[in-house]
Design a protein around this nucleic acid. Structure first.
Length: 596
DNA sequence: TCCTCGGCCGAGTCG
DNA sequence: CGACTCGGCCGAGG
């Protein structure tokens, strides 16, 4: 969700920043800037602009996209450069095998990524999802496999255990879980110890605690417990997978709606007719959506040229926008020289509403204060899916100075990848906090924009390996995404039962993972065989953020994402997560039982 | 192993 | 010539 990116409030500043203050190019005139092919990465892009008279539409964006690719070197897919790739492809791609994604074959950014040697603490090779059949570790995400002793060894090494402390219903839940005849897969997984568990009897929740001690101490040696927790995590992950049919149905409906909406905006509106290619962001498009494909985030960008931005508050997340160009089509949304996010969103919402009248199966939800999205819902089969359409400004300029100390991915993804991201545009969404009446230097809060790097987040999530082959067919799989899914789900389960936790959101989880990936930057730190250890490490990181009430925006280190959440709530959540971690995730066990 | 979706590209078409 | 559409290909995931 984009909406979850909670904006936090800090103190005001008068720091004036022009988005052209650090121009990428000296050729920023009153015409659109279009990049043309450059054969060199990074800074050569400075000189790779070409003036065009008018066409900020699709073409412009496509051109930009292309040039970004090309500026990375001949890295286009399969190194396609000319017309005969079609035939070349067949012969070339096979040997390229694992390196072909996004033309990584020759991508100077990725090729020169830092492949830092492993710490040497984990000697075991990590099996891959796709090639697990060939390996002996049996660490496929497929839960049908029996946990192997190796796995256990690995886990026990890296996860601080509490196996000797007996104090929760965990063991009983485990026992019940394996007792359930419907848990066929787990039966297989737990075959090794079923005889010791057979005596336990499924009962109601209340009696579980009573049985816990016995189940734990008598029936389960530590190793068995480790494997069991592993199974629970894998089983939970399996449960979170999106069904192909649901995905297919939802994608069809969403894409159809968006396609027609864009057509409508181009043909029937003045203010939004130059809307660019939709940016599909958020968890669904990052392959991080869990359970159901029921939330879609799509940003519709409008190229904002010749603008000047000024921080609205001290945390660097919010900005006011002024148009420098007289003839700007967005001029009508200016008030007191400030481009009003509120006014622009209001008109956008009106247009979407008009359009949606022709789609009777779609319902527009009421406006939420400060929310940048126009949200529509529809029913697909039996599931209600919601579509957040976020109007945004695309700014092809240097990122604001507040981001200078963010995105610390050098050790993880490499300097060049970081540079590549820094050359991408950034986006501004009409989002504010509070009632919008707060004033700062003559600017009303409701007129401000919040900066967004959803496009980079998505790219990182889909290219998350320190090694370029991470999670590719012939490479080694990691469990970064699985850990994040589990954390998101853990949070979800808690929020479901406790409304006081509503301010916590999946963006907190995602940000925690990003930070964790920077501190544990090697792919070998995230072996799929060590899912439990990695997940528990991620939880510990999250607990630390919560206890300190400090979780900084990955891109804007001055923004604390927890700053407007009460400390005691953070502590409460941290303690709960710690307990879950130390007792084998009873909430997951219960959830799996409820499913069966 | 095969399928679907999303992303990306070049070729083709239209005005 | 630019704007736009279409179809092919690939990787990720199921």
């Amino acid at each position: 969700m984009l909406l979850h990116t909670l904006a936090q409030q800090f103190h005001s500043s008068h720091f004036i920043m022009s988005c052209r203050g650090k121009p990428r190019t000296a050729e920023n005139h009153d015409t659109n800037l279009k990049e043309v092919t450059s054969t060199s990465p990074g800074r050569l892009r400075h000189t790779a602009f070409e003036e065009t008279t008018k066409k900020p539409k699709k073409q412009g964006q496509q051109t930009q996209k292309k040039s970004e690719e090309k500026s990375d070197g001949p890295k286009t897919r399969q190194g396609r450069t000319t017309q005969d790739q079609q035939t070349q492809k067949k012969s070339e791609e096979k040997p390229d095998g694992p390196k072909t994604r996004q033309g990584r074959t020759t991508n100077p950014f990725t090729e020169k990524r830092l492949d830092i040697p492993a710490n040497g603490t984990k000697a075991k090779t990590c099996s891959t999802r796709k090639t697990s059949m060939e390996t002996t570790t049996g660490d496929d995400t497929n839960t049908k496999q029996k946990p192997k002793p190796e796995t256990h060894k690995d886990i026990s090494k890296t996860s601080p255990k509490t196996t000797t402390k007996v104090k929760t219903p965990k063991a009983t839940l485990l026992v019940q879980f394996f007792e359930d005849p419907t848990n066929a897969e787990l039966h297989q997984a737990a075959e090794i110890k079923t005889h010791t568990l057979a005596a336990a009897k499924p009962t109601k929740a209340k009696t579980r605690a009573n049985n816990a001690t016995r189940g734990r101490t008598e029936a389960q040696p530590d190793g068995a417990e480790d494997r069991t927790v592993d199974c629970i995590l894998k089983k939970t992950l399996n449960k979170l997978k999106i069904k192909t049919k649901e995905r297919s149905d939802a994608a069809r409906v969403i894409n159809d709606f968006i396609k027609h909406l864009i057509k409508y905006l181009k043909e029937n509106t003045i203010s939004f007719k130059e809307v660019g290619e939709p940016l599909r962001t958020g968890s669904y498009y990052e392959h991080l959506k869990i359970s159901n494909p029921d939330e879609f985030d799509i940003m519709l960008p409008i190229l904002a040229e010749r603008i000047q931005i000024e921080p609205f508050k001290m945390n660097g997340a919010f900005y006011s926008v002024a148009l420098k160009r007289e003839m700007n089509p967005l001029k009508k949304f200016q008030q007191n020289n400030i481009l009003s996010g509120f006014e622009m969103l209001k008109e956008f919402r009106k247009e979407v509403k008009t359009f949606a009248k022709g789609f009777s199966e779609w319902t527009m939800t009421s406006k939420k204060t400060g929310c940048p999205a126009v949200t529509l819902t529809t029913l697909v089969e039996t599931t209600t899916i919601s579509l957040d359409i976020v109007l945004c400004l695309q700014v092809n300029s240097h990122w604001p100075t507040f981001t200078d100390d963010g995105l610390k991915i050098e050790q993880w993804l490499g300097d060049k990848v970081k540079q590549k991201y820094k050359w991408k545009p950034y986006y501004l969404v009409p989002k504010y906090e509070g009632k919008g009446t707060e004033e700062n230097e003559g600017v009303l809060a409701k007129d401000v924009w919040r900066i967004s790097f959803s496009h980079v987040e998505k790219d990182i999530m889909n290219n998350h390996g320190s090694k370029k082959t991470c999670c590719e067919k012939s490479g080694t799989s990691c469990c970064r995404k699985d850990c994040l899914k589990l954390l998101k789900y853990l949070l979800h389960l808690r929020k479901e039962k406790d409304s006081s936790m509503s301010k916590f959101c999946s963006y907190h989880a995602k940000t925690t993972l990003l930070h964790a990936c920077c501190s544990k930057s090697k792919d070998s730190d995230w072996k799929v065989s060590n899912l439990r250890g990695c997940f528990e490490h991620l939880l510990q990181e999250f607990e630390g953020h919560l206890k300190n009430v400090e979780l900084y925006n990955f891109f804007i280190p001055s923004q604390n994402l927890l700053s407007d959440i009460r400390q005691n709530r953070c502590i409460t959540l941290a303690n709960w997560i710690k307990e879950q971690r130390e007792t084998g995730f009873p909430v997951f066990q219960q959830d799996l039982q409820d499913t069966n």
